[in-house]
Design a protein around this nucleic acid. Structure first.
Length: 396
RNA sequence: GCGUGGAUGGCAGAGCGGUCAAUUGCAUGUGGCUGUAAACCACACGCCUUCGGGCUACGGGGGUUCGAAUCCCUCUCCACGCA
């Protein structure tokens, strides 16, 4: 069976409706990939995925290696069995942690002042100890243990974890990096991709041991970098597209740029994306961004936003084609009899008032996190279902 | 009635002569969260302000002192103990 199947290609844009076939089921694209970093989609039991409309989830190699360890997961037959995640899974390579744990988040133009340094903990040791041609040496925040990631190790760990779709080991470049650094890092990511491909073996297959154990096939995505520089983005997209990868991911996006800059980067990259391979946009996220990205040919999106916001008390409302937000912690909802969203079919809205959910948040009751997460994920599922319908109908 | 201990900002509760408009937590408000070190973070939270500062405040009143939320007297109220 073909890995990626395009069912309908838009004539208006690069948008398409398709299916990604994996050993753990099909993913109807465009699809949202909620983030289950540590093997759990925080607050949601796996058996409810289907009811919510969660088709696929995203786990993180760095965090799973940090605990419980890739070898432990392998002993249980892979992350699907270990965490009872009966759906297709993607795993991240740890490349994002080079950014998120790197302590180098210097510029944030989205906040206005592009010269303003974001506060990092003064004097504290940064978890990313060293980046070299060989790989990246981390100090795990959870216990201070040193963890080395190289392209070969990242692939090995991802094979042990056993997600269906895996990411090449890259460097997610911090926003504010200059041209020279971005160029060096992007080229290094390219060399790392070649090492990932070599380490993985023949395309679309696992090493014998892992394959025998789980019967899985794994598909590798290469990751486009290039930062905020047009020529580097184009060059990177071209390079990644030419490699023997199963899919292409766009990385290094939404690390502090404005929404306008994010779109720019997509526009630069889009012409060079291979049309027969699924395209993943790493870390995006917000409904308006998704709506635009789909037009550039993006098929899947992972983002922590719906689940993190939910835990912080923020839930989505429908506002035109995109989402508005409600902050459940506000006292104004104390006695509000309405659901989060009228006519919403989710478990939270069908059963509970804003008042009660507000009460749960103010009392720090865990059910509040569960209901808010349920609602946000359901909203995303609906949003993407609608997106697929619109593309199929030729409207996007 | 006697004795003892209390009364502090929306609440709880520190402070016990100057560095106190007053620690801290909660509540409240505002902003933030886009490949998860995030059930999190930042800021504000007496009134006024030309942002330098000014004014009114630690139950009421009076006193001591250069200076009192802090010490003394007294009144009111609360808690506990004894009658």
């Amino acid at each position: 069976m073909k890995f990626f199947e395009i069912k309908k290609q838009s004539k208006k844009s690069k948008a398409r409706v398709g299916i990604i076939h994996t050993a753990h089921g099909d993913i109807h694209t465009p699809a949202f990939v909620p983030v289950a970093t540590k093997g759990t989609l925080k607050t949601i039991p796996p058996r409810e995925f289907q009811e919510i409309g969660v088709q696929v989830a995203f786990v993180n190699t760095f965090h799973l290696v940090s605990h419980p360890g890739a070898n432990v997961i392998q002993k249980f037959g892979g992350i699907h069995a270990y965490a009872k995640l009966g759906i297709p899974l993607m795993s991240d390579s740890a490349g994002f942690q080079v950014f998120s744990l790197g302590g180098r988040k210097p510029f944030d133009s989205a906040q206005g002042d592009s010269q303003k340094r974001i506060k990092t903990h003064e004097g504290e040791e940064v978890p990313v100890k060293k980046i070299s041609e060989e790989g990246v040496l981390f100090r795990a925040p959870r216990d201070g243990k040193e963890i080395l990631f190289t392209p070969e190790l990242s692939i090995k760990y991802q094979q042990q974890i056993g997600a269906d779709l895996i990411m090449a080991f890259d460097e997610c470049i911090y926003h504010g990096a200059d041209y020279e650094y971005t160029k060096q890092a992007t080229e290094r990511t390219h060399r790392w991709l070649e090492r990932c491909i070599k380490a993985k073996g023949s395309p679309s297959t696992l090493p014998r041991q892992a394959r025998d154990r789980s019967g899985l096939q794994q598909f590798l995505y290469g990751i486009v970098q290039g930062g905020v520089f047009k020529d580097l983005r184009e060059e990177s997209a071209k390079f990644i597209g030419e490699q023997k990868v199963d899919g292409v991911a766009i990385g290094g996006v939404a690390v502090g740029e404005t929404k306008k800059e994010i779109r720019e980067q997509l526009r630069w990259v889009a012409p060079y994306l291979p049309e027969d391979k699924p395209v993943h946009l790493l870390g995006i996220g917000q409904s308006d961004d998704i709506l635009d990205a789909v037009r550039y040919g993006v098929d899947t999106f992972d983002c922590v936003e719906p689940t993190r916001l939910a835990r912080n008390g923020v839930v989505y409302t429908k506002r035109g084609r995109t989402f508005g937000r409600i902050d459940l912690n506000r006292r104004t909802y104390l006695a509000n009899k309405n659901p989060i969203q009228k006519n919403c079919g989710c478990y939270a809205c069908r059963n509970f008032s804003l008042s009660f959910i507000h009460h749960l948040f103010k009392e720090r009751e865990l059910l509040g996190h569960y209901l808010a997460t349920w609602h946000n994920l359901y909203s995303f599922a609906e949003f993407f279902r609608n997106l697929r319908e619109q593309i199929a109908a030729g409207k996007i």
